[in-house]
């Protein structure tokens, strides 16, 4: 995606979401994410954090309101335009969503394969990244044989392999010990320094306080934004 610094990476305008005929799990959510920003997304369980991310990684359409990504309004985008938008987005799912029948290598290679990258280049990139996240020895292992932390790292590797402009992580430290949690957080900091826009949904309030990034707080479907405690390149544009 072209990175025009004046165009927000993501823009929500009075977004509401309900599943089926159920109640609205998100109400009048409005915000903008500027390129290179880093936000935490917090709130009690069931507040709608994963739901908000789903709208942003295009797994769901809002019931009302407008969602724009990279300056493109999603409601008017054709089905053929979506894959290109999704290739600029990396997602670490709350439940990993690795494909059990594929090896770690193939799981991580997936975003490159769907983008039609040559197998030679895929091999080089994936092996390098797996080495970097410490899974070099588990390249041919299938996800069911990996530990929780290994799955998490595989899932993060898949999310970042295609160098997305926007990276979302849903509870990336939920299933790992503190030490691993901080290591993963460090990885996100590094990616952010390289210009990746990041949103991390988490319950880990201590970590949120410590890292000091701006916080999007969801409470019963309503969003409230607090600026970061330390200066970041660009902060949230609350509306």
């Amino acid at each position: 995606m072209d990175m025009d610094p004046s165009v927000p990476i993501a823009r929500f305008e009075n977004v509401g979401l309900r599943y089926g005929l159920g109640p609205e799990v998100l109400q009048d959510v409005s915000f903008e994410l500027n390129p290179g920003s880093y936000h935490f997304l917090v709130g009690p369980s069931g507040a709608g954090k994963s739901s908000l991310l789903k709208l942003m990684y295009l797994a769901h359409r809002p019931s009302r309101g407008l969602v724009s990504l990279f300056g493109r309004e999603i409601a008017t985008a054709s089905r053929e335009e979506l894959p290109a938008l999704r290739r600029s987005i990396g997602v670490v799912f709350q439940e990993y969503r690795l494909l059990d029948h594929l090896s770690t290598f193939d799981n991580v290679a997936l975003p490159l394969r769907v983008a039609g990258i040559r197998e030679n280049d895929i091999k080089r990139h994936v092996e390098e990244l797996l080495g970097w996240v410490g899974l070099k020895d588990h390249m041919s292992a299938r996800p069911p044989t990996l530990s929780g932390g290994q799955k998490q790292r595989a899932s993060i590797a898949r999310a970042v392999i295609a160098r997305p402009s926007l990276l979302m992580a849903d509870e990336p430290t939920g299933n790992v010990d503190d030490r691993m949690g901080y290591r993963l957080m460090h990885l996100f900091e590094e990616l952010n320094k390289l210009g990746t826009t990041i949103v991390v949904a988490t319950h880990n309030e201590a970590m949120v306080r410590e890292l000091g990034h701006p916080v999007m707080r969801l409470n019963r479907g309503a969003l409230d934004i607090t600026p970061g405690t330390k200066s970041t390149p660009s902060t949230v544009g609350g509306m």
Partner: peptide
């Protein structure tokens, strides 16, 4: 369906 959704979300075209 689950795996197909993951493929879609990683940017796969329907034709893929």
């Amino acid at each position: 369906a689950e795996a197909i959704e993951v493929l879609h979300l990683t940017g796969a075209q329907d034709s893929y």
